[in-house]
Nucleic acid binder design. Sequence first.
DNA 1: CGGCGGCTTGAAGGACGTCAAGATTAGTGG
DNA 2: CCACTAATCTTGACGTCCTTCAAGCCGCCG
Lengths: 252, 252
Amino acid sequence: MSQWSQHGRLQPHDPIADDGDEVHFCSTCAFGSACLPAGLDKTALNELHMLVGHVGPFHDGDIVFRSGERFGAVFAVRAGMVKTRQLDDEGHEQVLGFHLPGEMIGLDAIHPAKYPCDAIALDTVFVCRFSFPALSTLATKIPDVQGRLFDLLSADIGKSARYSGDHAADERLAAFLLDLSGRYAARGFAPNAFRLVMPRADIANFLRLAAETVSRVLRRFQDQNLIRVDGREVELTDKAALRKLARHILRD
Amino acid sequence: MSQWSQHGRLQPHDPIADDGDEVHFCSTCAFGSACLPAGLDKTALNELHMLVGHVGPFHDGDIVFRSGERFGAVFAVRAGMVKTRQLDDEGHEQVLGFHLPGEMIGLDAIHPAKYPCDAIALDTVFVCRFSFPALSTLATKIPDVQGRLFDLLSADIGKSARYSGDHAADERLAAFLLDLSGRYAARGFAPNAFRLVMPRADIANFLRLAAETVSRVLRRFQDQNLIRVDGREVELTDKAALRKLARHILRD
DNA sequence: CGGCGGCTTGAAGGACGTCAAGATTAGTGG
DNA sequence: CCACTAATCTTGACGTCCTTCAAGCCGCCG
């Protein structure tokens, strides 16, 4: 039963394809595209090196940053998957999102000047740390970096609106699968077969469902030949049908 | 039955208390606090005047900006209340938020470079229009303006997370009332008695409830002496109890 | 092999939605 | 100022989707 284990590119300890070096950016770097066309000279490159640090590995359950900590940096996921979540004073968890390689976390910490949520590795995770004061300074000097930051922040507002509506469980789950698929595709991973790195309970929490409901809907999707599921491995076999289900949530 | 009509400061056509002039900012201006300490000279002030335009009045139902329009500016509400909402292709509405004087709208449009939602006046509304290209340029010159923009954007990410969780109808509504109360207070309005400018259906949609549920819960709150309601006028008479209800949603 | 956490499946109950009817208010024109 | 209409709000009865509770299963790791 392991046709599955070959799918995707997210095996633990998967070597990081494009790691950057003294001169080049990681190909997934959120700022590479802003810096390169800006004709970034070595001085600026050096500044960038000063403000960026590669951190990791983190392992399943490790904390990248913790709610309440003083804000000092934003992070880009380089490898693995990170979940962000809040705990209320009674320990109730609220999952805010799942973050893939190339995506930015910690942007919601700028204003309160402390992290409003925990960021937790779901598997083996490497991140880039961007000192935010340094990044801000760089942004005043390089308008494209400033613009890129504005874009990243603005996009995050839009993202959090995505699942805010009132929708049936199957619409939510269809949207979730397609959303992940699209984000994997954007990062060069296989879009139609991937691993749900997070436990069912986290998916459920994120989508405001019970874990049992997630289980039942996934099973129903499989019975309807929309997907194939084996544990945490999933294959999308009828994206058109999924898209139809998710059309109210994914408008773009 | 009109003890109510005297409450609050949100009568239609309420004169705008502090309107700014050729030299001074509106007291509610999101950027005044960034510019003044920066020792903004007249040159810079002139730049600011170039990029800011007062727009209005809008009336109930009028559109401030429309989903899909090319993004060119962000707006600060100066008077009245604005709702933002999305419509899907079948006309289903999703209310994203209600915006009070002093609050910023349109920040979610930066990334897609077009407004992702409609902004609609709920009563008589005046806004300030900030040309975003000009604002960006100013931000590269005045780091505090850049920082203020980062703050506003970051805060919006946090805000949209606020109601994202799974909570009972009465918890949601309690949080909604306290949230409004706090925001009114922050802007110098009476925090404990105010007008719910928007129809019940909009509140319901925003909180992912049915309008009937909103009606029933408000009635129950009144029966429990937590609030007093008369049409759209509301008075919070037991904020401690409301806070207890809302404690899972409002952590701060 | 044995234990444990995560996942699945079934049965029952509940919170909220839907439907329908009335009540109240607001808006409009005579 | 009042009558008339339309929109909004309220209230009740009923249905349903999802949760909760409970039990069993599976895979993993010591």
